[in-house]
């Protein structure tokens, strides 16, 4: 861990307001959703009992909030305040700065995902084998990477935290709906069904559902996660470079 990453994580953990919705909101929403859900206890979704499948969906929400929503406005604020320019005037490689932002988002996603699992275990009595809990958590954690890269990209491209917040919320909504988190991808019309399978939200959920079903890790979903991470990460690095040499 670089000193700058440690510094980032420590500073971010001190922002209590952000911590609340970042870590606790998805875990708090899950039992609320189950309470108001009309699906019968024996109903299945994605071949899983609905309490388990929706636990995965809320864990995906945790990855989105930690990745996109926590990163973009904070980074835009640092850009607007001039702190990013100050960092560029110091001997800190650009890659270190961008990588630390992504890594810090991941450092928050892990407890956020785990808290959703805990909420499911407590409120719905969801039980999975120990190995499956670990696999599920780790796969969803890996699936946070493209969202963190997206958060960095939005933060670097938007002029103020307010704009970044709106852009992040819009991106989350689009990825959520088109990624098949509201309806099964097969219920989406025509081309959208194909698109859904290519989105990182859907890939994250696929990884989680497969782990919950005790199936092998779906390679296609991993490829989608890797592809989006590489693509968005490259765009983020380019945006950083462009900012640095206006």
């Amino acid at each position: 861990m670089t000193p700058y990453l440690r510094f980032e994580i420590v500073c971010q953990y001190r922002r209590l307001d952000a911590l609340l919705w970042r870590l606790l909101l998805p875990a708090a929403l899950y039992p609320l959703f189950r309470l108001t859900s009309s699906s019968a206890p024996e109903a299945t979704f994605q071949g899983l009992p609905s309490d388990v499948s929706s636990m995965v969906i809320f864990a995906v929400l945790a990855t989105l909030l930690s990745g996109v929503f926590a990163t973009a406005p904070a980074l835009a604020a640092e850009r607007a305040s001039g702190w990013l320019a100050q960092l560029r005037a110091m001997p800190l490689p650009a890659t270190t700065t961008v990588a630390a932002k992504v890594a810090a988002a991941l450092a928050f996603a892990l407890p956020a995902i785990a808290l959703v699992m805990l909420a499911a275990a407590i409120s719905e009595g969801v039980t999975l084998g120990f190995g499956r809990w670990i696999e599920l958590t780790l796969l969803l954690w890996v699936a946070t990477a493209p969202f963190a890269a997206l958060g960095v990209l939005i933060g670097l491209l938007t002029p103020s935290p307010v704009v970044a917040q709106s852009a992040a919320a819009g991106a989350i909504a689009v990825l959520w709906v088109l990624g098949g988190m509201v309806t099964e991808p097969s219920d989406l019309p025509g081309a959208l069904e194909t698109t859904a399978g290519l989105l990182p939200t859907n890939a994250a959920a696929e990884l989680g559902w497969a782990a919950a079903r005790a199936e092998a890790v779906p390679g296609s979903a991993l490829a989608v996660v890797a592809g989006w991470t590489a693509g968005l990460g490259t765009l983020g690095a380019l945006a950083w470079r462009k900012l640095g040499t206006r």
Partner: peptide, 20 residues
Amino acid sequence: AVASGGVGAMLQRGGLPEGA
């Protein structure tokens, strides 16, 4: 020169990171 650590700068609008 910046990367080599030869320069120290105080920018006019150099914000400071929240929480530090």
